[in-house]
């Protein structure tokens, strides 16, 4: 598929995010212009406390925006009901699930809730989509296990399968690689890249794995104290955006390897 045919999935214009209170509003970041297309794997990076979570919460309608516009599938985010949004946007959050006393299959099948009837019965089509999601993430061997038997890495894969079963154009993951070892960090992000290619979904995740994100993502959204930039990793490296990511006293960005080095 060439670039011209790609669909606009997320588009923000002049977006300001932050918190509104009785005393006025606290702006965390402003002038955010992002365009995400179908089939793209997009990483959201920035220092702690820069507003990554606030941006994700605003994009997922958990918290209201301050200014500007957000369009998902060329429709304003405001106009979506909860149920409509559940059919275009699925989430993988950092918070642990409340109950792990379910089989992997049951948990993945919960992703079909926006489509099932009042009591949540799975149709043959639903079952097929759930099976397909399990195969795509390659967790067939876990299917009948209880979720409390799984390791952190396995559980993260199950949660991604659940988001996949929700069958949405856009999947947003909040720090999907925390608590994982180096191998599983790479594994999960590689898996996301594969999914974006195979399913033509847009996958947006926040992460602190900057070197992995530079290697795997089609596009990065970089939040620095002065601006929010979104471009391909190559362009961002040559424009020197990563230099401004962190205070300069301790670590420096090495353009050749695409990673940060501790200053000696």
């Amino acid at each position: 598929m060439n670039k011209a045919e790609k669909q606009h999935i997320v588009k923000t214009e002049g977006l300001s995010i932050g918190y509104r209170s009785k005393k006025g509003s606290t702006v965390i970041a402003e002038h955010i212009n992002i365009s995400l297309f179908s089939g793209e794997l997009v990483g959201l990076i920035g220092a702690n406390g820069i507003g990554k979570s606030t941006l994700l919460r605003t994009l997922t309608k958990v918290q209201p925006k301050l200014k500007g516009s957000i369009q998902i599938n060329e429709k304003s985010l405001k106009q979506y009901t909860n149920l409509e949004l559940a059919k275009v946007l699925s989430l993988v959050l950092t918070e642990p699930v409340v109950s792990k006393n379910l089989t992997v299959f049951e948990l993945v099948a919960l992703g079909r809730q926006p489509y099932t009837n009042w009591i949540g019965n799975l149709s043959s089509k639903d079952l097929q989509i759930v099976e397909q999601a399990i195969v795509q993430i390659n967790i067939q061997d876990l299917k009948d296990k209880m979720c409390y038997e799984l390791s952190d890495g396995q559980l993260q894969k199950v949660m991604i399968a659940r988001a996949l079963a929700q069958d949405t154009d856009l999947i947003i993951l909040d720090e999907p690689t925390t608590h994982l070892d180096m191998y599983h960090k790479a594994y999960i992000l590689k898996l996301l890249q594969q999914l974006a290619r195979d399913t033509n979904k847009t996958i947006l995740f926040s992460s602190h794995e900057i070197d992995l994100a530079i290697q795997l993502c089609d596009k990065l959204i970089v939040m620095t104290p002065n601006e929010v930039v979104s471009d391909t990793p190559c362009n961002l490296i040559s424009s020197g955006t990563f230099e401004n990511l962190f205070p300069k006293d301790l670590i420096a960005f090495d353009e050749e390897t695409g990673s940060f080095r501790v200053k000696k």
Partner: peptide, 24 residues
Amino acid sequence: SVFSIKSLNSLLLGENYAKSLGLN
């Protein structure tokens, strides 16, 4: 309570997940 089965099941994931699954 029978009518609530579906919402109760989505609440097993936590309120934020339940909301992202379209539950009011």
